[in-house]
Simulated assay, not measured.
Amino acid sequence: MAQNLYCPRVRMGNWNEDIYLEEEYMKDFLDKREKGKLLIQRNRRLKKNLLRPMQLSISEDGYIHFGDKVMLLNPNYPEKEEAGLFQCGDLSLCMTPDEISTHLYDELEVPCGLSATTTRIPIGRNTFTILSAGKDATGQVLRYGQDFYLGITGGFENKMLYLSSDHRTLLKSSKKSWLQEVYLTDEVSHLNCWQASFLDPQLRLEFEGFPIQANEKIVIYHHYTNRALAVHRHLFLRYCIMHSRDLHNLL
């Protein structure tokens, strides 16, 4: 005689398929973890490279040379009351990858954004290399008015991004200040060229062509747009922008 074995504990539906799917999910997870393709593993590798300690170049003759590793530092303002001034202290230029991209990829996406932070410790995201704009001039002294590139690896060994900028348009500008945007790209073009000028505008013509001393306050201009590199301290978030006003940068 047949007996009714149904009870609330009996599984209904495609329970066998669900078990196989769970096993496939687990196999896929273990395979990605073994190959290092999990999102958290990619994110950790990217952060490890960006925060990797770097060694700045030491000048033996007191001058800046092509190939030197430097930090771009915006010195602190004099202590005085200024309306709307949010950012105080020394601010260093650093790369800031897109937040979503950092969770999806273990490499830098281009174009890459820039910002300024108060840290003065050289790491992968704020250490730049001075590169020649023409033929290889590694080791030669950098002079006022001479074209050069500012490259950054972000802690990676086989990747070089170049500091670039272009004219402001209705569709392309800095996110917060709406001024000329500065970004990092892997394409070499005339938009990567920069020049250094003497700090005192009354003496700039006289110092044209002279070597640049290490740790000297200078003004860095974009060769194509003739705008000075600056940090806007009136914004609550630290974005690197271009401004026509002369703000000091320290090599």
Rank of each mutant, 00 (worst) to 15 (best):
Asp246Leu: 05
Ser57Leu: 07
Asn14Val: 04
Met54Glu: 14
Lys159Glu: 10
Lys37Glu: 15
Asp166Pro: 00
Phe198Cys: 01
Arg233Leu: 04
Phe148Trp: 05
Cys112Glu: 08
Ile212Tyr: 02
Gly134Tyr: 03
Gly209Gln: 05
Glu24Phe: 07
Met12His: 11
Lys159Thr: 08
Leu163Ala: 11
His234Thr: 11
Val10His: 10
Leu229Gly: 07
Cys7Phe: 10
Glu216Ser: 09
Tyr6His: 12
Leu38Val: 09
Leu21Cys: 14
Asp246Gly: 01
Ile241Pro: 01
Asp68Trp: 02
Leu91Asp: 04
Gln195Gly: 03
Thr96Pro: 03
Leu205Gln: 08
Tyr224Phe: 11
Arg204Tyr: 00
Arg44Cys: 02
Met242Ala: 12
Cys240Asn: 06
Pro75Thr: 06
Arg143Asp: 03
Pro122Gln: 06
Ala228Asn: 09
Thr119Lys: 07
Tyr144Val: 00
His103Tyr: 08
Gln41Asn: 07
Leu142Ala: 05
Asp136Ala: 04
Ser92Val: 11
Arg9Gln: 09
Cys7Val: 08
Arg245Thr: 05
Asn14Pro: 10
Leu50Lys: 01
Ile218Met: 08
Ile58Cys: 10
Met160Thr: 11
Glu60Asn: 13
Ile58Met: 13
Arg45Lys: 12
Asn4Ile: 12
Phe128Arg: 09
Asn49Val: 03
Ser115Tyr: 06
Leu5Tyr: 15
Val182Thr: 12
Leu170Trp: 05
